[in-house]
Amino acid sequence: MLWKTNKNGNKEFLGGQESRHLAERAALECDMFVADDEDECVSDEPRSCYNCRYRRWTATAFECLKT
């Protein structure tokens, strides 16, 4: 399982901010992926939830805004 629903009712990634392979897998499974500005991309794999325009960083992971 890659996601949980957080207290804001948003989908939050369970892999934290350092699970590169899980974030890549999640993005491959997602039809909504759109790459963010290059300056905001933090993964070397272009298609990664860590690089998605619709991720919103939290203190420990990120929320998916396309829930």
């Binding site: 963010d36 905001e40 919103r56 939290t58 203190a59 805004l65």
Partner: peptide
């Protein structure tokens, strides 16, 4: 800072 009390869009930079 990334914090729940800050109303940033997605990265707060």
């Amino acid at each position: 800072l990334v914090h729940p009390d800050i109303a940033y869009t997605s990265h707060n930079s």
